[in-house]
Computed example of a mutant assay.
Amino acid sequence: MKMVLIFGAAALAEIGGCFAFWSWLRLGRNFLWILPGCGFLLLFAYLLTLVDSPAAGRVYAAYGGIYITVAIFWLWFVEGVCPDRWDWVGAIFCLIGAAIILFAPHS
């Protein structure tokens, strides 16, 4: 459960950081938006180091499924765009892949 919370927090930090840059460059917001953006991206990187795993690449790969799912919720709740069934189907496949990477018996 701790790992899921870390992944969720990391995803929100990464999406928030990237969205700050998106807001500055694509939505015409003030350049000062990059300051919280950088802070959130640093927090994201730090949070992933808290996952107990001997292989960083495996953590990053499994995190991708969580990230995609959280991004769909961001689309819905922050940007106000209702995800369609294909968004949800894609997210489910990504979560299945993340579960396989995390919980399969690795040699």
Rank of each mutant, 00 (worst) to 15 (best):
I68A: 13
L43P: 00
R29D: 11
F19Q: 10
A104L: 11
L5Q: 08
D52W: 03
W88R: 04
I92Q: 05
F73P: 02
G37Y: 06
V51R: 01
L25S: 13
F40R: 06
L102Q: 13
I96R: 00
G97F: 00
L43T: 14
A10N: 01
V78C: 01
A99S: 12
L12D: 03
F44H: 12
G65E: 06
P54M: 03
L41F: 11
V81C: 00
W86C: 04
G57H: 02
V51F: 00
D52R: 11
F31C: 03
F73W: 13
A62S: 12
L32G: 11
Y60D: 05
L75A: 03
D52E: 15
G8C: 13
L41E: 11
F73E: 06
G28Q: 12
P54E: 10
W22D: 00
F77Q: 12
R26N: 03
F77G: 09
G39Y: 06
I101M: 02
L35E: 08
P105M: 05
V78S: 03
G37R: 05
L27D: 13
A55C: 04
V51A: 08
D87E: 08
A9K: 09
G90I: 09
C94K: 00
D84V: 07
L27T: 02
A98F: 09
A9C: 12
A98K: 01
W74P: 02
I6V: 12
A71W: 02
Y67K: 00
E79H: 06
G39V: 14
D84S: 05
Y63T: 08
W24P: 00
A56D: 08
A98E: 00
A62H: 01
G16S: 15
T69K: 00
Y63L: 09
G17L: 06
A104F: 13
L102Y: 02
I66K: 05
A62W: 01
C82H: 11
L35T: 12
A62R: 03
G39A: 15
A9S: 14
L32E: 07
L48R: 05
